[in-house]
Amino acid sequence: MSQPPASAAVQRAEAVKDQMLQHDAFSHWLGLEVQEMGPGYCRLQFRVRPEMLNGFGILHGGVAFAAADSAFAFACNSHGRQSVALSATIDYLEPGRPDDLITVEAREESLKHKIGVYQLRLTNQHDTPLALFKGTAYRTSKEVL
Rank of each mutant, 00 (worst) to 15 (best):
H79C: 01
H79G: 09
H79N: 01
H79Y: 01
G80N: 02
G80E: 01
R81Q: 06
R81M: 04
R81P: 00
R81K: 07
Q82P: 00
S83L: 04
V84N: 06
V84M: 11
V84L: 13
A85W: 09
A85Q: 10
L86M: 12
L86I: 13
S87Q: 12
S87M: 05
T89F: 05
T89G: 14
I90T: 13
D91P: 05
D91Q: 14
D91S: 14
Y92F: 15
Y92D: 06
Y92V: 06
Y92L: 11
L93T: 02
E94L: 04
E94D: 02
E94Y: 01
P95H: 03
P95D: 03
G96Q: 03
G96S: 02
R97I: 00
R97D: 00
R97H: 04
P98N: 00
P98Q: 01
P98S: 00
P98F: 02
P98V: 00
D99A: 04
D99T: 01
D99H: 06
D99L: 03
D99M: 01
D100P: 02
D100G: 01
I102D: 03
I102W: 04
I102S: 04
T103S: 10
T103F: 10
V104I: 14
V104Y: 08
V104K: 09
V104D: 04
E105C: 13
E105V: 13
A106C: 12
A106E: 09
A106H: 08
A106I: 10
R107C: 14
R107N: 15
R107F: 11
E108I: 06
E108D: 10
E109Y: 06
E109L: 15
E109G: 12
E109A: 12
S110M: 11
S110C: 05
L111H: 12
L111P: 01
L111K: 11
L111E: 10
L111C: 11
L111R: 14
L111T: 07
K112N: 12
K112M: 11
K112Q: 14
H113Q: 15
H113E: 15
H113A: 15
H113D: 14
K114T: 15
K114F: 12
K114Q: 15
K114W: 07
I115K: 09
I115H: 09
I115V: 15
G116Y: 06
G116E: 07
G116R: 06
V117P: 05
V117S: 12
V117E: 10
V117F: 08
Y118W: 10
Y118M: 12
Y118V: 11
Y118N: 11
Q119E: 14
Q119K: 14
L120K: 13
L120G: 12
L120T: 13
L120P: 12
R121W: 09
R121G: 07
L122K: 07
T123C: 10
T123A: 12
